[in-house]
Amino acid sequence: MPFVALLGPQRFTPTLGEAVRSLGIEGRLASVTAGWQEREAEDLELHEHLGERTVNLQLYARGEDVAERDPELAAAHRERQAELRELQGLYRLRLAAAMEACAALERSSAPERLREREIEAALEEIRRLDAHHFERVTEIDEAFERSIRPGERPQVARHRRAVARLLDRTEAVAIAGGHVAILLNRLRTFGLDGELGRRPVLAWSAGAMAVSERIVLFHDAPPQGSGAPEVLGAGLGLVRGLVPLPHARRRLELGDAGRVARFARRFAPALAVAMDDGCRLEIRPDGWRASPGLWSLTSTGAVLPLDAA
């Protein structure tokens, strides 16, 4: 496993520069701001924050360029995305019913010795559903890769070579947040999934989610819907065994022990980790080191400092 640092959200508490310094990275850094979509190039603040040492890989713009020059690939991509959106909708329907069953059991006045096993069984159903959805998404992605072979198409291959050349001149990669699905798509399309394992990676917000092994979307109080966390699919897998939850204090009701416990139990054995602004989680081959501001959601409903979890 390569060295990876997951950072808290950077907008109000930028800590990337400090992390780069403390990790002894002195050379240039490749930056990925594809999650910002059409604002990808508006990275001056990031560039200055890192002492003007960044080279933006411009993965979003490259994606737009490929879409324009390779309409067949663009159409196939749109078709896959439409299929994935439909599938996510179907998963959401099943998930809503399964989550409601679990919540109803938790509300039940039945004796705890009876209730607890039923709750565990209901959670197991949800885990099975999550795993099923994960598999279905993976199948669709793999079928797309097999039939379209995007990496071998001239326009993509050309950009991949350009990205690889840029990466060769950098010491580490900084991956910003934004739209997690678009970010992940661009990282994969331009071969970063293979390249990232060879150099240190610093990632935050959606970037932290994209480098994890399984991407979980979350918001406890959306204006529409029940707010049940959803599995989106596989991430790049640079970080295993944890579910990064950036902006958790804004997006999750961490004081609601029932929700916290359900989240933790559902995604166990992976650790669900809430990431405050300013925090840093270093993941090295020999283990990880957590700064203050990282919190583990636990099966008891408590939210504990990650080191104590």
Binding site: W36, G177, H179, V180, I182, S205, A206, L217, P222
Partner: peptide, 13 residues
Amino acid sequence: SYLFPGPLWMIYE
């Protein structure tokens, strides 16, 4: 949010 839903679930900035 019902008529013009935003990308709430997808964006983590």
